[in-house]
Amino acid sequence: MCPSPLFLRANLRTMDKASVTQELTEIFEDVMDLDEVTLEDGTTANDIEEWDSLSHVRLIIAIERHYGIKFSNAEIESLKQFGDIVALVLTKAA
């Protein structure tokens, strides 16, 4: 039996902006196959060559999988920069 999502949530480590940024950076590196990326709130796909519409889809899926959450297409379309992703994760996974 899988634990319920509620159970998973309850066991999540502290969800603050710094820790989410750190985790998202690791996911980002894994998805984009990059090392030592520095992501700031204002970072956009224009700043990183590997971050294109294709890899963005994989990024979103990887984030959903990591946090056990699901984004709607409306939420995904509202993401303009890295800081938006951090904020959305904090809202949905907290």
Binding site: V57, R58, S72, N73, I76, E77
Partner: peptide, 14 residues
């Protein structure tokens, strides 16, 4: 369905 609608990927990426 959502993935199909936004990326035209015919089955879940996992």
């Amino acid at each position: 369905a959502a993935l199909w609608q936004r990326a035209k990927q015919p089955f879940a990426l996992e």
